[in-house]
């Protein structure tokens, strides 16, 4: 099968791969590029574990064809910490006991990051709405919501 070239930036680094046409971004990231932070929980766009940020918008990488991402800027949870320092959301998830099995965590953090990028001081309802596409089967929603609210507060303190 003829391969298709794709080129994009992943967490600020240039990436180029030849893929089979029809390959999902999730499989391209995990199997080709080796970034396994997005997880495949359902491969049908219902669990949110594969969430990534494409050009500032939250996307389900299991429903996104890699070949549609040419020239895009893609962010995943593995690219959030800088120089070994955790991103405020990662710090808040850690401190708030907002992880259990951890499988949904990177998708949750992606959804939360897009929310805070657009709405730096969200209400609790806005946090709930922003995370509504992400399933935590361990049902640890309350600590996750609290972590996002805490991260928002620490962001606004840093800005002040």
């Amino acid at each position: 099968m003829a391969k298709v070239p794709v080129q994009f930036t992943l967490n600020g680094a240039e990436k180029a791969e030849f893929i089979d046409s029809g390959t999902t971004l999730l499989n391209a990231l995990r199997d080709k590029i080796g970034d396994t932070s997005p997880k495949g929980g359902c491969h049908q766009g219902t669990c949110g574990a594969c969430s990534v940020i494409i050009d500032g918008e939250l996307r389900l990488s299991c429903l996104t064809l890699a070949e549609t991402c040419n020239g895009a800027a893609i962010t995943t949870t593995s690219g959030l910490s800088e120089g070994g320092v955790l991103h405020p959301l990662q710090r808040a998830f850690l401190d708030a006991f907002a992880t259990q099995c951890g499988f949904c965590t990177s998708g949750m953090i992606m959804a939360a990051k897009v929310l805070l990028d657009h709405t730096p001081n969200p209400s609790r309802d806005e946090v709930v709405e922003a995370l509504s596409g992400n399933i935590c089967r361990c049902t640890g929603y309350e600590p996750i919501i609290q972590a996002v609210l805490t991260a928002a507060r620490s962001n606004s303190q840093n800005a002040a």
Partner: peptide
């Protein structure tokens, strides 16, 4: 007490079985 597995979870570094190719 911090959970020992949490830093891996929040950074996407925790290796689940399928994170191997």
């Amino acid at each position: 007490r911090p959970r020992s597995d949490s830093p891996g979870h929040v950074t996407g570094k925790t290796a689940y079985f399928a994170d191997r190719n």
